[in-house]
């Protein structure tokens, strides 16, 4: 659909794990850096390293996504005694968005300022879309231009998709496989 201002695509399931550092019990960022060759951000933000994306989603709190199915177990071994690791591979419903009007459409739905100067590639917002708590990522530009991802707890997926369609409707929505 050539004239769709916004294209939505449900992301394929991927291994995801929550990492919550035990206060004063080691160096979680150091351990993650050693394992994935990238510094985990200390404030909401997203970096990529060796097949995984590490997003800061709270104080001393990260969401690691991607890689092998054994990601949670690997992190549990890596961070034993330093952080609580929880398997969240089935917990999130992730939608990818792009298109010429994607910022405008998202702005109708989420509460944070989406001006490019305030929310650019690598930024992460823990915010609300409609009544839903979501994680919003601004991804690196791709062949399709600006890209975003938005995650919500799995049980809310239908409500989030409804809200996204309502927000993007005026710009034309294309749902990709």
């Amino acid at each position: 659909m050539a004239d769709a201002g916004v294209t939505l695509r449900r992301a394929e399931a991927r291994p995801m794990a929550g990492v919550a550092a035990f206060a004063g019990a080691g160096d979680v960022q150091g351990a993650l850096a050693q394992a994935f060759g990238v510094a985990a951000p200390a404030r909401p933000g997203r970096v990529e390293g060796q097949g995984v994306a590490i997003s800061c989603v709270g104080a001393g709190h990260w969401l690691v996504a991607g890689g092998e199915a054994g990601l949670p177990a690997r992190l549990r071994t890596l961070l034993d005694g330093q952080a609580a690791v929880t398997d969240q591979s089935d917990m999130w419903d992730v939608t990818c968005l792009h298109g010429s009007s994607v910022r405008e459409a998202l702005a109708r739905c989420v509460q944070v300022d989406l001006h490019p100067s305030r929310f650019g590639a690598g930024d992460v917002a823990l915010t609300r879309a409609g009544h839903l708590d979501v994680i919003l990522w601004c991804m690196a530009d791709g062949a399709v231009g600006e890209r975003f991802e938005i995650a919500v707890w799995r049980s809310y997926a239908g409500s989030l998709h409804h809200a996204l369609h309502a927000a993007a409707g005026a710009f034309g929505v294309h749902v990709a496989d």
Partner: peptide, 10 residues
């Protein structure tokens, strides 16, 4: 020294 995480939807 404790961490809590909601995992209802997992």
């Amino acid at each position: 020294c404790v961490c809590i995480e909601p995992v209802t939807d997992q």
